[in-house]
Simulated assay, not measured.
Amino acid sequence: MKKKYLFGPIILALVLFAGVVFVPVSWLVKLVPADRLAESATSLEPNMFQGTYLQSEMLKRSTYVPIYGSSELSRWDPFHPSNYFETNDATFTPYLIGKGGMTSIIHDVNFATHAAQLKNKQMVIIVSPQWFVKHGTDEQHFAPNYSSLQAYQLPFNKEVNEQVKRKLMQRLMTYNAVKNDPILYQLYDAYLNDKKVMFNTLSVPAKAYISILEKKDLYFTLLKDKPTNRHQSGEVKDKSWEELKAQADSYGEKRTQHSKFYIDDKVYNHKKHYIKSMEGKNKGHSYAESPEYGDFQLMLDILKEAKAKPLFVIIPVNGAYYDYTGFTEKGRQDYYTRIKKQINDSDFTYADYSDHEYDPYFMRDTIHIGWKGWVYLDEDMQKFLEKH
């Protein structure tokens, strides 16, 4: 009798698994709620970044303007693009794609996945200096953000330049998240070394796994996102840019009365002891040299070939705090110069905020744009979209 009780749950689990795997995609798509795409525009849920369905649907619609970035996107206040453009009844909706730890390499794979949909697509890409650390993105930041689905799709992608695709695959193979996936790693190795028989053999389980991951993506799409705590406010409605900057100054001043370096009081109070311990600790640090520049170039190459229309946003650091830690101004300026040259050489447009390092209330803390910084971005974003 015990064996019957044992096999019952196993058989049920296998039946359920088979049901999940073999349910037609077309059935699942029909179950996606009509408001799911609009809801996901501000959800900042990793399942959306690591999948493909919602982004594909977003890219089909001219009413959405994607903003790619990292942790700054979750720094909500009334001046945040999601609130500003919604409050002012814009003809478009910002669609946020990014979270802490997402750097060029993560966005590269994402752009490669959607390359066929990027032609003439207007977008905003926020580039952060802290991406460009000496050794590049580490495993701790790569692994939670990397998309297994997008990585498996890459060798079969016909939309990306062959040389760029190979460089991207070689870069991905340096991370343990890829090394520890035997099918993916060997698939890449076979592709890069022209082992056709091996590649064709591995393609069978790889494509089967892609199918499972695509179903998983759709199942997650059916789930309702957790509500965001974003700051929705009408106080930025129908204001001139100068009025908004003055308003942001006042807003920031009220929230930095008990901190140094114009850091948000809540952030400062939470990290006060850490900040005190950082005095002079970053002597000799620089953003001048990093593997990230190569990763960023791959992004530029993918977008250029896809004929996308990006506006790059060059975020500064909190200059007063960086001086306090001993991080040299030259180590920052070398970064600003190099990143602008890369963007210029690719004939793309950028908004340069590097001269706002010491501008009060431009940054919310030591590295994240906020308050007045958002106002500048809103204005530049509006001008860019009108021009293009």
Rank of each mutant, 00 (worst) to 15 (best):
residue 1 M to K: 11
residue 7 F to M: 09
residue 23 V to L: 11
residue 29 V to E: 15
residue 30 K to M: 14
residue 31 L to T: 12
residue 32 V to Y: 05
residue 39 E to R: 06
residue 39 E to L: 14
residue 40 S to N: 02
residue 43 S to M: 08
residue 44 L to M: 09
residue 62 S to H: 11
residue 65 V to F: 10
residue 65 V to G: 01
residue 70 S to I: 01
residue 75 R to N: 14
residue 77 D to T: 14
residue 77 D to F: 12
residue 79 F to W: 13
residue 82 S to M: 10
residue 85 F to N: 07
residue 92 F to M: 08
residue 93 T to L: 03
residue 98 G to S: 10
residue 104 S to C: 13
residue 106 I to H: 09
residue 107 H to Q: 11
residue 109 V to R: 01
residue 115 A to E: 05
residue 120 N to Y: 12
residue 126 I to K: 08
residue 127 V to K: 03
residue 131 W to K: 07
residue 133 V to R: 04
residue 136 G to F: 08
residue 140 Q to F: 10
residue 140 Q to C: 00
residue 141 H to K: 10
residue 146 Y to P: 00
residue 153 Q to A: 02
residue 156 F to K: 10
residue 160 V to Y: 01
residue 161 N to T: 06
residue 162 E to F: 05
residue 167 K to D: 11
residue 171 R to W: 01
residue 173 M to C: 06
residue 173 M to F: 02
residue 183 I to T: 15
residue 185 Y to R: 13
residue 186 Q to D: 07
residue 188 Y to G: 06
residue 188 Y to A: 06
residue 188 Y to T: 12
residue 194 D to P: 02
residue 195 K to F: 01
residue 202 L to Q: 11
residue 211 S to F: 13
residue 214 E to S: 02
residue 215 K to P: 08
residue 221 T to N: 01
residue 223 L to I: 14
residue 229 N to T: 11
residue 231 H to R: 09
residue 245 K to N: 04
residue 245 K to C: 04
residue 247 Q to M: 14
residue 249 D to I: 08
residue 252 G to A: 03
residue 253 E to G: 00
residue 265 D to A: 05
residue 269 N to L: 14
residue 272 K to P: 05
residue 283 K to Q: 12
residue 288 A to K: 09
residue 292 E to Y: 00
residue 305 E to A: 15
residue 306 A to H: 07
residue 308 A to S: 12
residue 308 A to Y: 07
residue 312 F to C: 08
residue 313 V to F: 06
residue 316 P to Q: 07
residue 324 Y to G: 07
residue 325 T to E: 04
residue 328 T to I: 08
residue 331 G to E: 01
residue 332 R to E: 04
residue 337 T to Q: 09
residue 338 R to V: 01
residue 338 R to S: 07
residue 338 R to F: 07
residue 344 N to Q: 15
residue 345 D to H: 03
residue 348 F to M: 14
residue 351 A to C: 11
residue 355 D to Y: 10
residue 356 H to P: 00
residue 356 H to F: 14
residue 357 E to L: 12
residue 361 Y to V: 08
residue 369 I to G: 01
residue 371 W to H: 03
residue 371 W to P: 00
residue 373 G to A: 08
residue 376 Y to P: 04
residue 379 E to V: 14
residue 384 F to I: 09
residue 386 E to R: 03
